[in-house]
Each structure stands twice: as C-alpha cells, then as structure tokens.
Design a protein around this nucleic acid. Structure first.
Lengths: 205, 205
DNA sequence: ATCAAAACAGGTCATTTATCCTGTTTTATA
DNA sequence: TATAAAACAGGATAAATGACCTGTTTTGAT
C-alpha cells in the first residue's frame, strides 16, 4: 500500500474517536447557549459552530433539537442545581446557614460578572414547560429533586420538621429565590436577590 | 358613474376603517400567543391568522415583531398586572387580606382551567429580558410598577412600614409568587401556589 | 483478518420565518 | 372637491432554520 493512502486532506494527524467527549462538548455549548440566549433563539448552527463539531457528528449524537434540549435539561441543568444548591445546603452546618451561603455565593458571582443571566432551570422551564409535554416533565423533575434536596436538609437539622412542613418550606425557599432571580435578570441588578436573602434569614427558624 | 364601480370582489359591503380596533385585535391575539406559546415559538403568521387581519394591515400597525412584542408588554402585560394584582391589593381592606384574595383568585381560576399557563410577565421576561435591551427595560418597568403598587398598599396599612421595608416586603411577595407560579407551570399543579399563599399568611404581619 | 456497527465529515434540501412590496380604499384636511 | 396621508389588501422574497443524506473512517466483536 502506498504511504499517502490514509487522509486526503490532513496527512499526519490520525483521528481518534472520543464519542463521550464530543457529546460533552456539544452539551456544554448547548447548555450555555440555551440558558443565556434561550432555546428557540438559538439555532442548531450556532451550537454546532460553538462546539466546533461537524454536522455529521452533531446529527449522530443529537438527531433532533428536542433531544438535545432534553439532554441539556437532564444532564446539565439538573447537575447545575445539584452543585450550586442541593449539595452546598446539605453539607452546611445548618440548612439556614447553607441557604444563606448559597445565596451569597450566587450574588457575589453575579456581581463579579457583567450580566445577570438568570437561573438555568427557570429560564428553560418558562420557555419550554408550557409547550411540549416532555420538556414540562423534565423541568418538573428538576424542580422536584431541588425541593426534595432542600427539604431533606431541613429535616436533618436540629429544628425538627415534619416531612410535609419541610417540603412546603423548601418549596417556598426555591420559589422565592427563583422569583427574585427573575427580577434580578429583568433589572440587571442583584438587589432583589439581596432582599430575598434578608427575608429568608427572618423566615427560616 | 356605473353602480358596480366600487369593490370588484364584495359588491355590497363597504369597508369602514377602525384602526384602533384592528390594532387591539392584533394585540389581543399576540398577547395570548406570546404568553401561552412563547415569543419565539409564535410566528407572525400565527398571530395574523388568529387576529384575522391581512398582511398589509398587520405590517401597517406593527412593522416588526419586536415592536409588537414591546407593545404587548407595555399595553397588555402591564395592564394584566395592574388588574390582577395591584388594583385588588390596593382596594382590599388590608394588604395582607388583598394578597391572600388575589392568590386565591388566581389559584381558583387555574384550577377551573385545564392548563397552567404561568404568569404573563414572568413568561415573557424570562424569554426576552436576557437578549434584547429594549425588552429587558420594558420587563423591568412592569416589575417596578408591580412592586411599587404593592409597597404603597403596605404603607397605607395601619401597620406602619418604612418605605424601604415596604419595598423589600413587596418585592419578596412578588418574587415568591412568581417562583411559585413557575413551579406550578412546570408541574401543571397549583400546589406550589397554595403553599406560597400559606407561607405569606405567616410572613406578612 | 472480517465484518458490522458506531463515529464522523461535509454538504444539501424543504420548510418556515419575518419582512417587504405594489396596489387599492378610506379618511382627514384645506 | 382636491389632495395627501393613513389604513388596508394580498402576495412575494430573501434569509435562516432544522433535518437529512451520502460517503469515509474508526472501533469492537468474531
């Protein structure tokens, strides 16, 4: 066999497939674009270019935009909620302190950055959970895990809660934060989040 | 002049222009479509067909989709907030009772209807305030009016609030409601709103 | 080594979308 | 009544979008 048989264009560099890495690059680019610009406002071309993958590879991993959106919800948005909210609150000395620490961390990060992009879950949930059933279920699942994670932390605390009461309080914490973040995004000002943090301090025993 | 000179197609019915009514029909259709399906998910064709207007009339009143979206925010979403929240709370005997009444009315209406479509302002704010500056400012203006309306009611109440404290509390009420509605929309279940109403009862003095 | 399937490359295609265009009718103004 | 502008009608269009398609290379199983 002739030595120049392999690649017609790039002669030396042989391709080594990394399907998982390729998939992750697409998911990362899609997560960023969907959360910051919105699902419908983002074109598949944008994600493809952002991730730097070919159309063939893109279509191989995600044959449709809906499948990509669902994967972003289940494999990126869910993890973001776990890492930024559930885990810190559960690992804190008390849930009250954990919630305050999380809020402060988010406020500080937003203050450092130029733009307030909002909560990934709420951004996507508002745009998608009203239309498609699969999106609605996927968003609801993340909200459920979020609420249950906070409720568990509240129940493990010294201040004994009934399960129902812990669930209600956890839901109210999530709702207040979500709404405050919505106002902060609209105003491009973290003030609403600071007020929310102060109110929660008074509210949580 | 010959009697059949006027309209080539419909002979008898003469057209009487009603530009304000035409504009309102377009705005109503756009408001409904933008809030329920989303801004980007709604095509101009859909609104045009829903309103039953010609392309020419449509383009005459709203030359671009962005202008239509801004008009919907300023002339429909803002009014919806005033009529469903600000006015009832300000007219109630006490702001606490007014807030409970508003929440109950919304919960009852959602329970009667089949679908939880969410808060018009929050739906549009989440999708639009992140991208375009004009949209962001328009959404923020509605949030500001909303918060100030509730804060005024709190300050007129017997329980004297400082202006700053009334503003913080009003913002927290709006944030909690907005977030609870987001969860209700995702889950298609009013439970989060009921819990929110109960928590507010404990919180507001 | 053989073979089938997975992974990837690059381009095409039908459809949708928002906007615009030409022409007609109505209204307001003088 | 003359005239310009507003209001409306119906269709055209260029751009963008999501999906698809043919071919090549890599990988894993036998």
């Amino acid at each position: 066999m002739s030595p120049a048989k392999r690649s017609p264009a790039s002669p030396a560099r042989s391709r080594s497939n990394d399907p998982e890495g390729m998939r992750n690059r697409i998911l990362d680019a899609a997560f960023d674009a969907f959360v910051t610009r919105g699902y419908h406002a983002t074109a598949m071309n944008d994600i493809r270019d952002l991730a730097g993958v070919s159309g063939g590879a893109f279509a191989h991993h995600f044959p449709s935009k809906k499948q990509l959106g669902l994967a972003v919800l289940k494999e990126r948005v869910a993890d973001a909620v776990t890492q930024s909210w559930i885990a810190p609150v559960q690992q804190a000395a008390t849930p009250k302190e954990g919630i305050r620490t999380v809020m402060t961390a988010i406020i500080d990060e937003l203050s450092a950055r130029a733009k307030v992009t909002g909560c990934p879950l709420n951004n996507l949930a508002h745009e998608l959970s009203g239309g498609d059933r699969d999106f609605q279920v996927a968003c609801a699942a993340v909200f459920d895990r979020w609420q249950q994670g906070i409720a568990e932390a509240l129940m493990r605390d010294g201040t004994a809660y009934e399960a129902a009461e812990a669930g209600r309080l956890a839901g109210f914490v999530i709702a207040s934060y979500s709404g405050a973040m919505a106002m902060a995004k609209s105003r491009q000002d973290v003030g609403a989040l600071c007020d929310c943090r102060a109110m929660m301090d008074r509210m949580i025993p």
